[in-house]
Computed example of a mutant assay.
Amino acid sequence: MENTLVDKTFRDSDGNVVIAQMPNLPLIVWIVTSVLALIFTPGKINTVLEVVANGSLFTWAWMELFQGVNYFRRLLGLVVLIGIIASKII
């Protein structure tokens, strides 16, 4: 198989096209804590849930950026990482 830019962008090492995958643990934690933060809006519980949610999403983005199966997944990690940082600055 040829190693074109399109192949490197969307295919994994086995040659499968990978755009989406089953969520890994940091992404599952982010989803659960984000939903719980919407339910428990006031107080310290909400603050803790938001910190855990942001930390787990940061971890997921970092893992995708450096361990993603293709360039698309790595770019996705970079975009989410920049988005997290930008949302905290603004």
Rank of each mutant, 00 (worst) to 15 (best):
D12L: 02
F58R: 02
G68M: 01
N54S: 12
R73F: 04
G68W: 00
N24G: 06
G43K: 14
W60Y: 13
V32D: 13
P42R: 12
D12F: 02
S56Q: 05
G83H: 02
G55L: 03
A53R: 12
G83C: 02
N46C: 03
L81Y: 02
I85R: 01
T47W: 04
G77S: 03
L65S: 13
T59L: 08
L81C: 07
E64S: 15
Q21L: 09
N24C: 03
K44P: 13
R11H: 14
E64P: 11
Y71A: 15
A86V: 14
A61N: 01
R73W: 03
N46K: 06
L78K: 07
R73T: 01
A37R: 06
M1C: 04
F40G: 09
E50V: 10
L65N: 08
G77P: 00
I31M: 14
N54Q: 08
L25G: 07
A20H: 12
P26A: 11
W30R: 07
V18G: 13
V52E: 04
M1E: 06
F58C: 04
F40D: 05
N54M: 04
S34V: 09
L81Q: 06
F72E: 05
W30Y: 15
N16R: 15
A61Q: 00
V52P: 11
V69M: 14
E2S: 14
L76N: 13
R73L: 06
S13G: 06
T4F: 09
F66T: 10
N46L: 01
L57D: 02
I90C: 01
V29M: 10
V69L: 15
I45D: 06
I84L: 01
I31L: 15
L38H: 13
M22K: 11
M22W: 03
F40Y: 15
I19E: 15
T41R: 13
K8D: 04
I39L: 14
P42N: 06
V32M: 15
V51A: 11
F66P: 04
L25D: 05
F66N: 06
L49T: 13
N70Q: 12
N70D: 11
Q67N: 15
R73Q: 10
V79R: 07
L65M: 08
W30C: 14
E2V: 11
L38P: 05
I45V: 15
N24L: 13
A20K: 14
P26G: 05
G77T: 00
L65G: 13
L25Q: 06
L49R: 04
N3P: 03
N54K: 06
I84Q: 01
V52W: 06
L36Y: 10
L5E: 08
L81G: 10
G77E: 01
P42S: 03
V29G: 15
V79G: 05
R74N: 07
I90Y: 00
A20C: 09
T33A: 07
Q21F: 09
T4G: 13
V29D: 05
T33P: 02
T33Y: 02
V32F: 10
G43C: 07
L57M: 10
F10G: 10
I39W: 04
T4C: 12
I85N: 00
L25A: 07
T59K: 07
S13E: 03
